[in-house]
Amino acid sequence: MSAIEKRHEEDQATEANGRESVLSVRDLTVGFGSNIVLDKLNLEIYRGEILGFVGASGTGKSVLMRTVLRLLAKRAGKIEILGADYDKITEAERIALDMRLGVLFQHGALFSALTVRENIQVPMREYLDLPQRLMDELARVKIELVGLAPEAAEKYPSELSGGMIKRAALARALALDPDLVFLDEPTSGLDPIGAAEFDELIAKLRDTLGLTVYMVTHDLDSLFSVCDRIAVLGKKRVLVEGTVEDMLACDDPWVQSYFRGKRARSIVRHDQ
């Protein structure tokens, strides 16, 4: 029995204690040439929470996410996802681990030659042993879950609006019922109502599917409304992490201006 499967059985047991770490990053260093982007970064995500990740442009939010997803190589450090250390597991276990991760890329990254339904079925076909009819139904269930009209199933990505692309990409990220979902700026480019709906959708899916969500976002509304915890990236590491109150109490100038700026103040005031 592999390490991951053991983990799977322990899922229920540890859940009762709460605070089970789903993703743990220790002393991570990433750089390009002589330019160090992340230096000894530490990060922890616990099961069932929505972690909002913010930082000024160019501080390495995307680099961190891409490193965690193994799209970039790291210089040093340790990344543990769902209890497995990427460097120590076999290729088969890595694939099994990838099945339990879902990613929503910033621009959707839907395959342009496939319809929305076929996009959702790409991972299903590859990994699930299901009859075609059930797979079609499941794809349509996911399309309904993310709030797309059934007609969208047979459309190509180039025929969809920006909001629909985000929803379709979320449906694809959820195709295999992942445990941990990475969202890269899920609400960017959506109108405020669409963004609020998307936030609600993420919170609802977290509750029903038991997801853990790692969300890179600049949307203050999302941060305040759905994120359980916020982490701020700066100076090549996590500057501060905690709840909105912790952010407001932090005395770092960037964090101050981000969370106490004009735009943030109006939201905080409405909340209270």
Partner: peptide, 18 residues
């Protein structure tokens, strides 16, 4: 209870696309 929630979140039937 959490499985009931999951079942409730799904649509009762699929509207067939035209």
């Amino acid at each position: 209870q959490r499985y009931v929630e999951l079942i409730d979140a799904l649509p009762a039937e699929l509207r067939a696309p035209e």
